[in-house]
Computed example of a mutant assay.
Amino acid sequence: MSHHPPNPPVIHSFASSEVIVSSLAAFVVKAQKEAIDKKGRFTIALSGGSLPKQLNGLVGNPAVKWDMWQVFYADERVVPLTDPDSNHLLCSNELFNKVPIPKENIHTIDVTLLDDLEELSDAYEKELIKEFAQKDAARFPVFDLILLGMGPDGHTASLFPGHDLLAEEDRWVAYLDDSPKPPPKRITFTYPVINHASRVAFVAAGAGKADILKAVLDRPEEGLPASRVRPVFPGQLFWFVDEAAAAKLEVTSDEFKL
């Protein structure tokens, strides 16, 4: 565990959400290149919501080495993979069905375990252990990149305000059956997993996110779930926002340039 203070977040603000798409693609490709150069694979975790749509810039992008990707879900709804609520279905429709990624590189929940949340989250944790433990021998997995969205209540992944899971320090994957948003049953990465990533990037666009973005970035002491994402050194936190979402921030921002 590092005793370094976390790196301050880097905030990239763009004129529109369209520009976020191309800049986010460049950012992902850069993270991918560094990871593959270093260890021959790229580990990434995705969430659902409006995030998968923002990854359109990766479709048809010749710099993406899809066969080197290992994809996990930062959270998933406990539903069949064909259910409209499934994050995997959403990410598949928006991205994976449009690109040549090998199906076995995408780690989904085990749908034979939908009736047993404990078993289901344990099985998903074992998927992580298989990918990370033998190779990195770390207490927690170190993802190259975790991409997250943020709800209007400040939740991220399936970590909700005031929920017991905000205090989970041991498990890599935890379950909840009382999500304040439907569907109630979900599994989610815990903070130790999110905060051990090399890079975590939030994407937040639209005026509807302005108040909560201000609360998360300017008032972290309120402890909203998104503001508890603070990667341990040397990990870095990035925000990709549009001007509408950033309208109430006091922090300075810059555009992402390679």
Score class of each variant (00 low, 15 high):
residue 2 S to W: 12
residue 3 H to G: 13
residue 4 H to G: 07
residue 4 H to V: 05
residue 7 N to K: 07
residue 8 P to Q: 03
residue 10 V to S: 15
residue 15 A to E: 10
residue 16 S to N: 11
residue 18 E to S: 11
residue 20 I to E: 07
residue 25 A to R: 05
residue 27 F to M: 02
residue 27 F to Q: 02
residue 31 A to H: 09
residue 35 A to M: 04
residue 36 I to S: 09
residue 36 I to W: 00
residue 37 D to Q: 07
residue 38 K to D: 15
residue 38 K to V: 08
residue 40 G to K: 00
residue 45 A to L: 09
residue 51 L to A: 15
residue 52 P to K: 12
residue 56 N to M: 11
residue 56 N to I: 04
residue 57 G to L: 07
residue 58 L to W: 02
residue 60 G to R: 04
residue 61 N to K: 07
residue 62 P to H: 06
residue 62 P to S: 15
residue 67 D to Y: 10
residue 70 Q to V: 06
residue 73 Y to D: 02
residue 74 A to C: 14
residue 77 R to F: 12
residue 78 V to H: 08
residue 78 V to P: 02
residue 79 V to A: 10
residue 79 V to F: 01
residue 79 V to M: 02
residue 81 L to C: 05
residue 81 L to N: 09
residue 82 T to L: 10
residue 85 D to R: 00
residue 86 S to Q: 02
residue 89 L to W: 03
residue 93 N to W: 06
residue 93 N to Y: 04
residue 94 E to Y: 01
residue 95 L to F: 09
residue 95 L to Q: 09
residue 96 F to N: 14
residue 97 N to E: 12
residue 101 I to E: 13
residue 108 T to R: 12
residue 108 T to W: 01
residue 109 I to C: 03
residue 109 I to E: 10
residue 115 D to F: 00
residue 117 L to Q: 05
residue 117 L to F: 02
residue 118 E to K: 13
residue 119 E to L: 12
residue 125 E to Y: 00
residue 125 E to A: 15
residue 129 I to W: 04
residue 131 E to V: 08
residue 131 E to R: 03
residue 135 K to C: 08
residue 136 D to S: 14
residue 136 D to T: 12
residue 138 A to D: 13
residue 146 I to A: 08
residue 146 I to V: 11
residue 149 G to C: 07
residue 152 P to D: 15
residue 158 S to E: 03
residue 160 F to I: 11
residue 160 F to H: 05
residue 162 G to N: 14
residue 162 G to F: 00
residue 164 D to R: 11
residue 166 L to R: 10
residue 167 A to R: 13
residue 168 E to R: 07
residue 171 R to D: 09
residue 176 L to K: 01
residue 177 D to C: 13
residue 179 S to A: 15
residue 181 K to H: 04
residue 187 I to M: 03
residue 190 T to V: 00
residue 191 Y to F: 15
residue 191 Y to M: 09
residue 192 P to H: 06
residue 193 V to P: 05
residue 196 H to R: 11
residue 197 A to R: 01
residue 199 R to H: 09
residue 201 A to Y: 01
residue 202 F to W: 00
residue 204 A to W: 03
residue 205 A to E: 13
residue 207 A to K: 12
residue 208 G to C: 07
residue 209 K to S: 11
residue 214 K to F: 11
residue 215 A to C: 05
residue 216 V to L: 06
residue 216 V to N: 02
residue 218 D to E: 15
residue 222 E to V: 12
residue 222 E to L: 14
residue 222 E to M: 14
residue 223 G to Q: 06
residue 225 P to C: 04
residue 226 A to D: 14
residue 227 S to F: 08
residue 227 S to E: 13
residue 228 R to N: 09
residue 228 R to P: 01
residue 231 P to I: 08
residue 232 V to G: 00
residue 232 V to C: 06
residue 237 L to E: 05
residue 238 F to Q: 13
residue 242 D to P: 02
residue 243 E to S: 15
residue 244 A to H: 12
residue 246 A to E: 01
residue 247 A to N: 04
residue 249 L to H: 07
residue 250 E to H: 08
residue 250 E to A: 11
residue 252 T to F: 02
residue 253 S to L: 14
residue 254 D to G: 14
residue 256 F to K: 04
residue 257 K to E: 08
